[in-house]
């Protein structure tokens, strides 16, 4: 039971980080109908800036700059590439983002080489004991931060003019333009917010118990794709649910993999994708999705 609770808390914590990434993915899809495959590379870029800067500026300033950098990079991708690509189909843009991803990731891995970079976070490997359950402090921080950011975003999405503009554009871009909503600004801000959220997620993907930021971090980020897709690509609620499902599934499957030995080792890494496949078979638009994902 103690093991189960520990795995559950860790799973929820990882899940909330995946939800941050998936949320960015969904925001971009809602605002521009582009499936952004470059999301993992934006995350890597944000993490890389934090890793390189923290020895000089201290952790908090480095984090701030890293988040801003990832937001700016995402906005640049939108402004220089997505906006200017005059293509008829959004699937073409999705493929363009794969190209962007390859360029950014290749450059970053070249810079990193085989190093494993520490992000210099203040939490280190300290643990907290709640009852009999032992959890790394940083996992609690991750859960809290992710929950706070997601709440903040959902409130803004619901109540601010920016949120109204985003939702109107997502529903009917032409009519939104007729209402005087500047689609370019909506799209730019969506990318910037998504990039910034990804950088925060990068921090929590690279802290204890993982060794730090390395070229493998973007693989960890890729687990957010099934999270976004199984929740429904156009649903913010879906991104949250999807993130938590993926996080908990992964933690439990990894934790109990000795009992699940017949499935082979490393089932934890595969599990999110298996869950995604099963859910897509039952609900092709995802758990909370409204549109056909075929539209992608």
């Amino acid at each position: 039971m103690i093991t189960f609770l520990e795995l559950l808390v860790n799973g929820l914590s990882m899940g909330s980080v995946y939800a941050l990434i998936a949320l960015g993915f969904v925001i971009i899809f809602k605002a521009t109908e582009v499936v952004n495959f470059a999301h993992a590379s934006l995350l890597l870029a944000g993490g890389y800036v934090v890793a390189r800067l923290h020895p000089f500026t201290g952790f908090w300033l480095a984090l701030l700059i890293g988040v801003a950098f990832a937001g700016l990079l995402a906005a640049l991708v939108e402004f220089l590439i997505i906006r200017r690509a005059n293509v008829g189909s959004h699937s073409v843009l999705a493929i363009v983002t794969i190209g962007v991803d390859i360029v950014i990731t290749t450059e970053l891995t070249r810079q990193m080489g085989t190093e494993i970079l520490s992000l210099g976070d203040p939490w280190g490997d300290s643990v907290v004991h709640i009852g009999g359950v032992t959890v790394a402090e940083v996992r609690i921080v991750a859960l809290g931060t992710a929950a706070a950011l997601i709440t903040l975003f959902l409130l803004a999405f619901r109540y601010t003019g920016w949120g109204v503009a985003m939702r109107a554009t997502a529903e009917d871009a032409e009519t939104a333009a007729l209402m005087g909503i500047r689609l370019g600004r909506v799209s730019l801000s969506a990318w910037a917010v998504a990039g910034a959220l990804a950088a925060v997620a990068a921090l929590f993907l690279c802290v204890f118990p993982t060794p730090g930021l390395d070229r493998g971090t973007s693989f960890a980020a890729i687990k957010a794709f099934p999270a976004a897709i199984l929740g429904g690509l156009d649903s913010t609620t879906g991104a949250l649910a999807g993130g938590l499902i993926v996080g908990v599934t992964e933690a439990l499957m990894t934790g109990y993999q000795n009992q699940l030995a017949f499935l082979g080792r490393g089932i934890g890494d595969v599990a999110p994708f298996l869950v995604m496949l099963v859910i897509l078979l039952l609900r092709p638009a995802g758990l909370f999705g409204t549109r056909e994902t075929a539209r992608v």
Partner: peptide
């Protein structure tokens, strides 16, 4: 905007 409230439509 069918998925938004009447109020939010007016805000838009």
């Amino acid at each position: 905007f069918g998925r938004m409230t009447v109020e939010d439509n007016l805000r838009a």
